[in-house]
Simulated assay, not measured.
Amino acid sequence: MNQIPVYTFAKWQVKEGQLDTVLTLLAEVAEKSKKEKGNIFYKVHQSNSNANTLILFEGYSDATAVEEHRNSEYFQNLVLGKIIPNLESREVILASELNLDRTL
Rank of each mutant, 00 (worst) to 15 (best):
I84S: 05
E97L: 14
L56I: 12
V6H: 02
E88S: 01
G81Q: 01
L78V: 14
D62C: 06
T24E: 10
N99Y: 05
A51E: 11
E97N: 14
A10F: 07
N99R: 14
F41Q: 15
E68R: 14
E16A: 15
I4W: 09
N50V: 07
L94E: 08
I84H: 00
N77Q: 09
K15T: 00
S89F: 04
E58W: 04
L54Y: 01
E31R: 15
Y42Q: 08
T24F: 01
Y74Q: 13
Q18C: 04
N50A: 05
R90W: 09
D101Q: 15
K11T: 14
Q46V: 06
K15I: 01
V66F: 03
S96Q: 14
V92D: 01
Y7T: 13
V6E: 13
K34W: 10
S49Y: 15
D20T: 13
K15S: 10
K43A: 15
V44F: 04
N52I: 09
A27F: 02
E28H: 03
K15Q: 12
S61I: 11
G38H: 05
R70G: 03
A63P: 05
T103A: 14
K11L: 07
N48M: 10
N52M: 03
F41A: 12
Q76D: 05
N86K: 07
H69Q: 03
L104I: 10
E36C: 15
V66T: 05
N77A: 09
V6A: 05
K82N: 00
E16H: 06
G59C: 08
S96C: 12
E73F: 09
H45S: 12
I84L: 00
L80W: 06
E36H: 08
D101F: 10
A27D: 14
I55D: 00
L19Y: 03
L26I: 06
K11E: 12
Y74K: 01
W12D: 01
L26W: 08
F9H: 13
L23C: 00
E36F: 12
I4P: 12
H69R: 08
L94R: 15
A27Q: 10
V29M: 01
Y74G: 10
L104D: 08
Q3Y: 04
D20C: 11
M1V: 12
G17S: 02
N86W: 07
L98D: 12
T64P: 01
E73C: 05
S72C: 03
L56Y: 13
T64K: 15
T53M: 00
T64F: 11
E91F: 01
L100H: 11
V22A: 12
D62V: 06
S33R: 03
S72A: 08
E36Y: 02
G17H: 02
G17K: 04
V44S: 03
D101I: 14
